[in-house]
Amino acid sequence: MRFIVGLFALMVLSACRQQDAPALDQQLYIWQRQWTPAHEQALRDSRADFSTLRVLALQAFPNTGVSRARIDARLLKADGRPLIAVIRLDGQLKSLDRDQVTAQILQVLSDWQAQGLVPSGVEIDHDAGTARLPAYAEFLSHLRSALPTSLPLSITALPAWLNSAQLPALLQTVDSSVLQVHAVSDPRRGLFDAKQALKWAKAWARSTDKPFYLALPAYGVALLPDDGGAPQIESEVQVERGGQRRELLADPLQLSQLGKTLRDDPPPHLAGLIWFRLPLANDRRAWSLTTLRAVARGDALGSRLGVTVSAQDGLYDIQLDNPGNLDSAWPARITLTGRGCESADALAGYSLQQRPDLLTFTRLHDGRLPAGGQRAIGWARCAIIDQGGSHVDP
């Protein structure tokens, strides 16, 4: 009897511990250098699922110098979520002029406050080589002393730093860290590896006693044709260069599974996940916000591609639909049965093979249909099209 009572108490205690474990915080990076009207809708639709916005504020590169992101302070103020100003200092900078860079950061914070924004932290994104970590730690110590004591300071960190004896000293200079586990290896090997990311997260947890976050990808890039030098990638901005591109896209299903693993058994000190980046409606290499929100929530993912036809006076508009919550590749082939089809044509991205009773649309190049999205693929003038006789071949 005593054993049963003890076992029951242990089960109750275990259940309480699981119930008391805090959920992983979900945050977003806003990385566009120039804001557009599309930000308003994206901010509004993301508010319920992401607690904090980490906003690109300033960038410094070796050849182009320092530039400020053109944020929309009105939108951020109306949004009301905590804001963290992210300062991007390229790793190829020969050195960090601590006084000059600190002055620029303080000016950004002052300008934000003048626009009615109240930053809740500063994040420094500097992909320094391990040999330069002592100098980087010195810079961070100087910056920490210049910032208000109430303003938290964090850094974007790289898995390569795990092998450095300087890492503990570096982490002592900041309040928290953000371990980036995407786009940290040769892009020819891919954008992201979930198993490796989990290993890095567990190793990072052993290296710090302070809160840390994982920066996870919700986007894709294109690998440009190999010219024998270092690999080049194309992201939001198109690169003026010909040749076949190899698209690399973070897999939502893979990230969803990683999120479940981290929620079920989080490494010590893991405070949350930060998704890169807030997707805009016209962002061709980012997940849709519908998919991103579903992954962040841990929802079951699925796309349900279908065809919709609408007729007026014998003219049919043909549309591909994705009512699911998972972005989907354009299907390779779509067939429709009908009668008396006199003329028809495909729209950009597809070709058409026509018979009097069958229309076959064949994909010409890759593309993605966002979750909840629609795309017109063609038209036809027929006596009748049987929508129930349509077939979508992935």
Rank of each mutant, 00 (worst) to 15 (best):
L249G: 02
V5R: 15
L278F: 01
W275L: 04
D111G: 14
I274G: 02
I384P: 00
S145W: 03
L249A: 11
L153K: 10
G116W: 04
L24G: 05
R2D: 01
Q113I: 10
R284S: 12
S145V: 11
Q92V: 14
G338S: 13
K94P: 02
Q32N: 08
A222E: 05
A222P: 00
L224C: 08
A157S: 15
S390K: 08
G349E: 01
F212Q: 06
S150A: 15
G372L: 02
L216P: 00
G298A: 07
A128C: 10
N325K: 09
W330R: 11
L96K: 14
S176A: 15
L143M: 12
D264E: 08
Q100N: 13
L347Y: 00
A21K: 14
Y350A: 06
C16Q: 13
G220P: 00
A348L: 06
P37S: 12
Q238N: 05
P119G: 14
S67K: 12
D366M: 06
D25K: 11
Q254R: 14
E138M: 11
R68C: 03
P159Q: 06
L248N: 01
P231M: 10
S67M: 11
G378H: 02
V55F: 01
F50L: 11
L109W: 09
A42P: 00
L56G: 04
